[in-house]
Nucleic acid binder design. Structure first.
Lengths: 213, 213, 213, 213
DNA sequence: CATGAATGAGTGTTCATTCAT
DNA sequence: CATGAATGAACACTCATTCAT
């Protein structure tokens, strides 16, 4: 039917099938146990291949780590960015839309474990931090900055310091995924976070604040 | 005056000097490199003692880790808690006071590296997480909850879900110290965070929100 | 003829070659130097492999110890037992046959070092002692008991307490191998024991005693 | 009353009190756990002194071991020897007397753990083996040989090879104390040995043998 | 004399990495 | 391409030994 379309797809998949499963398994384990506590043998086993095969695709455990981070962020982020930039409507709705689509596209996916990883291992992988800043932090922050700027330009938001405003929108999102991957799994119901309620509350506070005048 | 009384005091202090230096060195290195990437020998060396001496005071690397958390957080936290509970004035001032005294007593000290440690290693040390929750998270959250409740009871704050409200005050504080200990050290001026401006902006947004009605 | 069938056989043998050499080396060294004085690295080196390889086959030094005992005694013992049970003839000849075939099958082999090992380390390995009793002591004693009972039933031996009778046949055999592996190697000719003469003398005394009426 | 007699005694005791307790504690632990598995700290603790004090009296753990062996044999053996040599009566009674006084003076005392120690560590302490042979084995064997020779000379015993005859009297005695200190402590009643019954049975067999003609 | 804090060489064990098959 | 047996450097932890007090 579509041999022309299938051929390259199959070839590409052939070449990336193993690495894809390895990267996925590695992400799971790195997020769950941390970099050093994760054994490459376990990664290989979970991906259904042998230890030797892993080293066929990734020259070292550190390279595997870098590949995991590199693999699991660009896609999600750019899709999120695209969605937001095409939004039309009030800035408060845009903010709401940004938070919830972030949850859909990033926060609820496996990629949400990467910030915890980056945070833990930042000191040991300086080049990776540079890459992460360039590929994730800067575009992400720029995106949030655009929303704030739009709101202020349209008179919908109070004037605010852009840099710190961005951080203060970002912080609760980061908190959500860090919590999910650290204290979440080993805590009782009392400390579990329901993302929708959490994000709704964040929006409410972001927009109107606590103060009753 | 009392040389006889002083002598034993000095001796007692001698006895605790080593553990103190070890805990301090361990905190530094754990925060900087993570738990497993830190070698006990390096901790000992930085504290000016031998590897054997370290094991004289802490039966294992894991116990050292626990001791670091215990030593460098419980005290600070309870001092912070005490200060806040004696506060009198408007709830918005109380919130401001809480944030800035938190920065003074915890955020700006070395102890601020511990949350990053805890988040990174949570998966591998369930019992330590239990200890941390009981000793740090629960009292800290309770403190913030008391502030929110007070503000709502006095009609100064809008009604808000207590649990999520606490998380949303906490998130930016946590973000600040996590950033400081991960991306902070290896980033340029552009991404540095000035704590005072940051906390002021947080307060502004917490109290009044972005929305210009 | 059956090259296909041979290939896997050779492979299977390959797979067991290493453990066999390791067990043999471990037996030598354990007997020579004792359990704790033997370094696993030395065992590996003598077997021609690296330290890591040893731990590929035996999860710990203690497990290596257990495997040595299992491997080098159960087989020998059961072969000895089989031989004796098929004996037909006078009970005094049976006793003679038992002692000499014990020497052939056990006393003169490397396995004869194991009793010394067991006695030395009994206090530190209670579970191994249980295994050894069940696997070696009980069957061995039962075998000797059968010989005594047969002799008494046929009126060839005086009545005797079975339990202590067994110990008193066993004691000189044990003495022989203990001596061989402890004082033997470092003593002059004067204290060397010739097993055949020794066993002949034991038989003579066992059967007729010292007393000249 | 007897100051002259007391003074030197007290002085001697002063000097040897600590070493005596240390040697006693060391003997217990060496017998129970083996040489390497025994920690000097535990020896010191059981003797009621500090680790440092132990090294005040014994320059090294090996020296402690040697001292333990040296200390705990000469006395017992020579007293036994004296008793036997003054015996008058039939040679069979002499043999009985030798076995039971051996049990009284050696087999039932703490010194009975030394043969196990010597056996286990013979390979690691060659000089000690030489000392042991000279001080214990040779005199002990000579003693037994004298009994045999006396019996043969008086026509009470059959002619027998002296060297192997000695070994065959010795073997059950050695077996008794080895068993007591290895399998004895961790075995059930079934495998316990009652020394008196054991020695009686040994005598019976030694003198008259199993054979019913 | 006695102590016990301090040491550091030594050991069992792990695990990322290699390579012959 | 894929394997998994083999490696050996690295690390946590131990413990005999020292020495200032």
């Amino acid at each position: 039917m579509l041999p022309i379309a299938n051929a390259p797809t199959r070839r590409a998949r052939r070449k990336d099938a193993r690495p894809g499963e390895l990267l996925s398994a590695a992400l799971d384990l790195f997020v769950e146990k941390g970099f050093s506590a994760t054994r490459v043998e376990e990664v290989a086993h979970r991906a259904g291949v042998s230890k030797g095969t892993l080293f066929l695709y990734f020259p070292s455990k550190e390279d595997l780590f870098k590949a995991v981070v590199r693999e699991h962020l660009s896609d999600h982020l750019s899709r999120w960015s695209d969605e937001i930039d095409h939004f039309e409507g009030s800035s408060r709705d845009m903010l709401r839309y940004a938070l919830f689509s972030w949850w859909e596209l990033i926060g609820s996916t496996k990629a949400s474990g990467i910030p915890k990883l980056m945070m833990s291992e930042a000191g040991n992988f300086p080049e990776l931090v540079a890459f992460y800043r360039q590929e994730v932090i800067e575009p992400g922050n720029a995106l949030l900055a655009r929303i704030l700027q739009r709101g202020m330009a349209r008179g919908e938001f109070h004037p605010i310091d852009l840099k710190y405003g961005v951080f203060l929108i970002l912080a609760p999102l980061l908190f959500l995924v860090l919590w999910k991957h650290s204290f979440g799994p080993c805590c009782d119901q009392h400390t579990q976070i329901d993302p929708v309620t959490y994000l709704e509350t964040q929006l409410e506070m972001l927009l109107h604040g606590l103060s009753a005048h």
